[in-house]
Design a protein around this nucleic acid. Structure first.
Lengths: 155, 155
DNA sequence: GTATAATAAAGGTCAAAGAAAGTCAAACAA
DNA sequence: TTGTTTGACTTTCTTTGACCTTTATTATAC
């Protein structure tokens, strides 16, 4: 426990308690621990990332904030496998299989699968920098993490 | 947390209630919240704009006023307006307003809106080429067109 | 009395300043 | 070498203020 990042992590965990999410002010927290504000980002990205079961959201400007959310506790092997695949690029066909699997396993509704397929279609993701497969993986991963967080919310 | 613009927004929403429109005096309101009058304009343009389903009208000079109205337009015109908006880049906040409006107007389900918001979040669309707003608009467009096609299919 | 000019009372616009959070790379420590 | 810490610079959203335009009322001229 000698480094400050660990202390900040502990502090956040403590304040989170059993809650699903926690709002913090980056500057206040940095001030409290007497560190550069960007260190808070460092802690968030190394400790409160999706691999560790967390998601974050934020707003800049006056009245800005950072929200830290729990994404998951029950890490089913199956879902873990899918998320793992989504760390790499994914083409449209493979992505559709994944979506179908998510529906079949009751992870999401039919109607949700439809909009997702639209969202990750080659047409939706066309861009001049050959980023299509990368973006598709990112989008799917985000959708899954969010959906997971919401599911455990209503449990 | 909590900035004044959000408080003013809440105040206006509160006073609007279920009504179709509300008349306010810019100066009075600014005075009440102890802010520059132009901040009222800021709140109106960021919170009570077309994407959020509002229209405003005003008159200057003695006895001037601002009217805030709920915009209930004919569906085709309305959807056309949204698609038009999606020909340009769209930031996340605006996109969320659009999705909320699509849900409110029964164009799609709640649960669909959730996955869409995940799909178009800054996190999902982060990329090294500053394409975020462009991609977001593309994705939303695609989803709407598809959904529309499906709806008119079953009519 | 009517026409016109001046004044006051609104609201509008825009840009600068301020207040957050984000990024990235260099320095540092284990 | 890997993980931490810091700081300079960037982006986004909010707040403020100076200046502009429109409308209503009041004063003045004829």
């Amino acid at each position: 426990m000698s480094n400050i990042s660990d202390m900040i992590e502990a502090f956040i965990m403590d304040n989170l308690g059993d809650d699903e999410h926690l709002d913090i002010s980056r500057n206040e927290l940095a001030n409290f621990f007497n560190v550069a504000p960007s260190q808070i980002n460092y802690v968030l990205s190394t400790r409160f990332n999706y691999e560790r079961g967390f998601l974050t959201e934020s707003k800049r400007g006056g009245g800005g904030y950072i929200t830290i959310m729990r994404a998951d506790e029950d890490n089913s092997v199956w879902l873990h496998g899918i998320l793992d695949r989504l760390n790499r690029d994914v083409d449209f066909r493979t992505a559709c299989y994944i979506v179908d699997e998510l529906i079949e396993k009751k992870f999401m509704e039919d109607c949700q699968g439809d909009v997702i397929k639209s969202a990750i279609s080659p047409q939706a993701l066309s861009n001049p920098f050959k980023l299509e497969n990368r973006l598709r993986a990112q989008i799917l991963r985000r959708i899954i993490m969010k959906n997971k967080a919401k599911k455990s919310d209503s449990d």
